[in-house]
Design a protein around this nucleic acid. Sequence first.
DNA 1: CTTTCCCGTCGTCACCTAAT
DNA 2: ATTAGGTGACGACGGGAAAG
Length: 306
Amino acid sequence: MEEVQQGSNGTESQAATIPTTITTSQFSQIAQQMSLGGSALTVVQLPGGQLQVQGVIQSAQSSVIQSPQGQSAQAQSTDSEDSQDSDSGATAQKTREILARRPSYRKILNELSSEEVIHIEGKDGSPASTGATGVTVPTTSIYQTSSGQYITITPNGTIQLATSGSEGLQGLQAVTMASSGGAQPGTTILQYAQTPDGQQILVPSNQVVVQGAGGEVQTYQIRTAPTSQAVVMASPVGLSQGKSDDPTMKREIRLAKNREAARECRRKKKEYVKCLENRVAVLENQNKTLIEELKTLKDLYCVKTG
DNA sequence: CTTTCCCGTCGTCACCTAAT
DNA sequence: ATTAGGTGACGACGGGAAAG
């Protein structure tokens, strides 16, 4: 479901990765940095059995991996700490740092991806080459409305309408949509569509605007069909006037944005958890390698002395 | 077949932080 | 001070598996 809805933005961002072949001896260094910093790495086994770590190792920070439960406890403890007269300001500061809210998943991953771009460009000067996981190239998304019409969303953000019954997508009419959320791919929350009379209309990202043959404009709510992840149903909704003073409209917009934000947040969280799982895999692998190395050395030592 | 339990997902609220 | 966005917590809902 999420994949399709992201597609409604026309783009999907996925962090590029830098393949970095490492040796066993480098492993411990990396692992140490990983245990200190919030690095998001993935490890890939090459056909030859060699391990390849992809991603960026951040410099050591004081961030601590904490469970969500731990976070809710943080807020409480910081509050109570303020009420107490602490014996040492430095201790309080330290505690505050430890208990500080972890940076958002978006922040963590954005930092990673931006660093990666720099690394990639600096490497060979060519446009971002994809790593093992690669960068997803934005593709045209196709949606079907409840009235049987097809809507395409091209990578450049243009919404196009195709009449039903046509083979493929013909007779397209474009309604250009400008993102208000900057050019960051996959982060568009609200969009504005231009009506034929030049009026700007606020369009939540879970809606698309379609211009009919007669010039009339209709917004559609994007929803994934429960039976299929590939098919998206779009139902007509009332047009939302831009900058509405109506409190109910304000609330609607706020809820829509929050809905979208929650969705995005969950996606980021999943990504983040995957990164952590990859780190576990790397560390487990390293542990295994080191144990084997130790065993070999022990055997060697026994043979020499024995 | 029905019920119960578990799990994943979603929308919403509340709170916090950063930006303006 | 206000606003926007991010995220934890909560409850609702639906689907699948196990038990009756």
